[in-house]
Design a protein around this nucleic acid. Structure first.
Lengths: 189, 189
DNA sequence: CTACTATTAGTACCAAGTGTTAGTATCGGA
DNA sequence: TCCGATACTAACACTTGGTACTAATAGTAG
């Protein structure tokens, strides 16, 4: 027994959401109805054709002008940011971030905090780190809170230099100069 | 005067990279040549047709949706090490290591691989990174395998300089010079 | 002049559709 | 039982943005 129209249509929605790359033909075979029926269903549900679906998915990535980075991709928590100017984040060092032997935070976590802060600072949807010169000034231990401050010091075309200083209390634990590369020139999104 | 074939083709590459949504027809008008010429150019440069371009852009975004994970403890797998001399590790870039937007590996993962390799290289139970100068030479994408090679280039008291080069295939993607600090002088484990 | 390259033109074909019209099947109700 | 609505299928013409191929032409170098 074939599914009813209602059932088919609601499954169709899921099917297409799940995989927008599916053609009417494939759907017709899947639901064992004619291609025309699928087309009618799409009409009724106002689901655009394959190419339009794909295009809109592609456009999202490509033309989305919003900000550099979804917030959940940042290591540490950003507490203040003024794009292309400065940004601040905090990062609480936990047991999983330290060496078992000496409970000193592993360098790459401090680097990651600073690096993602530098990325988040750049007002562009494609920001990459080109170079960095960093210094680990003092060991950081489990339980400490690292406050990282980033400041864009100069921009030359697509390259922006960001200075990052991380501290625990008043003590500087990490310093870094990041040369960031952006996809378009400053302001010219 | 029309541009030469070479000039046109190199501009064509940029044009399409800049906006993959452009049709042959638009390109033909832009360069004031026939559509066939544009097609021949694409053939020679093996640039896929509009739909394929859009599709691949869409596929990238779609595949990377809904994924974001905290960084792991194990950064790469060490496959060879000669203490205080050299070390090699491999790191397979997965979806969770890249930016959702553009599928480029986030810098701190490459740093983490290199940094932990430098740490592992030092024949001491307290090895810390003091400074580092790093360079991200080429973007790394999901699915690629990064091979990192570290070599101790000089030791001065408690400080050892380690040079790390990471490659995907034959292409260098990351270079770094790490100044490592150890708790005791060389040989004193 | 000939050989060769670059370019243009034209044809047939394809995928994955749209839009339209027409025909069939089936069920529910007066 | 017949009527009509709903669902489905079919057929045809047309669209976009191409591929693949062939043929013709213009210009230039040897």
């Amino acid at each position: 027994m074939k599914k009813t129209k209602k059932v088919r249509q609601s499954e169709l929605i899921k099917k297409i959401e799940d995989n927008p790359f599916v053609t009417d033909d494939e759907l017709a075979k899947f639901f064992d109805v004619s291609v025309q029926t699928i087309r009618l269903d799409r009409m009724e549900l106002s689901i655009p054709e394959l190419r339009e679906r794909i295009k809109s998915v592609a456009e999202q990535t490509f033309e989305d002008e919003v900000r550099s980075l979804p917030i959940d991709e940042v290591i540490g928590e950003i507490i203040d940011v003024e794009l292309d100017d400065y940004a601040i984040s905090i990062f609480d060092v936990q047991k999983e971030h330290v060496f078992q032997r000496n409970s000193i935070a592993r360098g790459h976590h401090l680097f990651a905090q600073a690096n993602s802060l530098a990325v988040a600072l750049i007002n562009d949807d494609l920001a990459l780190t080109a170079k960095a010169a960093i210094e680990f000034c003092k060991p950081v231990h489990s339980g400490q809170r690292v406050v990282s401050k980033a400041r864009a010091v100069r921009t030359d075309g697509r390259r922006t230099t960001v200075e990052v200083t991380s501290s625990v209390g008043k003590e500087v634990v990490f310093k870094g100069e990041f040369e960031m590369y952006r996809s378009s020139e400053k302001g010219g999104e």
